[in-house]
């Protein structure tokens, strides 16, 4: 049983069945205003932005009218495929050795946990992994990462708390190069994207990677919490401006939040989702599957 079927089971319980609601409305009013309003509500309550929602639903409505469609299921399928096309434009991320993955994001989205899972995933794929504890700010962050490193059985490079994060990155790169490590994963401190000085610190780390390890395949991933609302957009925008973002890791998808903001994100910023986090266990990470993601919304 895949995650999303597990997830769907949860959702049907908590959500009172969107399908049921649509059925009721359709029985009363066929494909009238109420039906489309309901579709809009469905997207909005999944944290798709109002703007994107209106654009997408308007488009569906027009198509349905043009095709003189009277079938509710067909309209829902139209909507699903429109959503699918919006978010499904990138292939799964292929991490080529030697690789550096820097994970960034605001506080509390699950960066450290995600890195533990990623390390484990790469080890299982037969790659050698080193992780760099460049979150030198949060109390005991490197302790937390050490536990994950132990679980995934990978090496960890760390300094003491309060040390210069870029120095950790520098040392980790030296070590990764010396040992021909396939994947170096860098944990960074959570920072709200409005804090200019912390974003400057991040840019410095980014420069260190580029300068010290120019031949590495360098991926910058942002971790976004699925329970976040419209602020996710600002987060990606500002981090993207600061260091350039190659992909999104959508965390905490095992809750009841849908992370619908990624639809608006894909619409406007074109940053693909590459991984999803689905729990607190080390195996709870998967490649993003657009189809499953959409299905879980309905």
């Amino acid at each position: 049983m895949g995650l999303f079927s597990k997830l769907k089971a949860v959702l049907t319980k908590t959500r009172d069945g969107v399908g049921k609601k649509l059925n009721e409305i359709f029985a009363k009013d066929k494909l009238g205003e109420d039906f489309y309003d309901q579709l809009e509500d469905l997207l909005i309550s999944s944290d798709v932005s109002v703007k994107t929602t209106m654009e997408i639903v308007d488009e569906i409505r027009e198509t349905a009218i043009k095709e003189k469609c009277k079938d509710k299921d067909y309209v829902v399928e139209l909507l699903k495929s429109e959503l699918y096309d919006t978010i499904n434009y990138a292939d799964a991320l292929e991490v080529k050795s030697p690789a550096v993955i820097m994970v960034v994001g605001v506080n509390g989205v699950g960066k450290t946990t995600t890195i533990g899972k990623l390390a484990n995933k790469f080890v299982k794929e037969g790659k050698s992994v080193t992780i760099a504890a460049a979150d030198t700010f949060r109390a005991a962050a490197s302790d937390q990462l050490s536990v994950w490193a132990e679980r995934a059985k990978v090496r960890i490079i760390k300094h003491s708390e309060g040390a210069d994060a870029s120095a950790v990155v520098f040392d980790a790169i030296e070590s990764a190069k010396a040992r021909n490590t396939d994947v170096l994963i860098i944990d960074t401190a959570g920072r709200l994207h409005v804090k200019t000085n912390l974003m400057e610190e991040l840019k410095k780390m980014d420069r260190v990677v580029k300068r010290e390890y120019p031949n590495a395949n360098y991926y910058k991933l942002i971790a976004l919490d699925a329970t976040t609302g419209q602020n996710a957009y600002n987060q990606v925008e500002v981090f993207n401006q600061a260091v350039g973002i190659d992909g999104i890791i959508l965390t905490k998808l095992d809750g009841t939040a849908k992370g619908g903001f990624i639809i608006s994100l894909s619409y406007e910023l074109e940053v693909p989702v590459v991984y999803v986090g689905t729990g607190e266990k080390i195996d709870d990470i998967e490649d993003f599957d657009a189809n499953e993601f959409i299905e879980a919304m309905f």
């Binding site: 908590t14 909005i44 309550s45 999944s46 944290d47 605001v106 506080n107 509390g108 709200l192 994207h193 409005v194 804090k195 919490d225 329970t227 976040t228 609302g229 419209q230 602020n231 996710a232 600002n234 809750g255 009841t256 939040a257 903001f261």
Partner: peptide, 30 residues
Amino acid sequence: MTGQVAVEVANTFNKRLEVTGLVLTKLDGD
């Protein structure tokens, strides 16, 4: 920064624990 799910989260925690108050974090963001 929590989105639409805030209602469900607050409702469930409150129902089960009868919370006495809420605390908002990370309000220094945008």
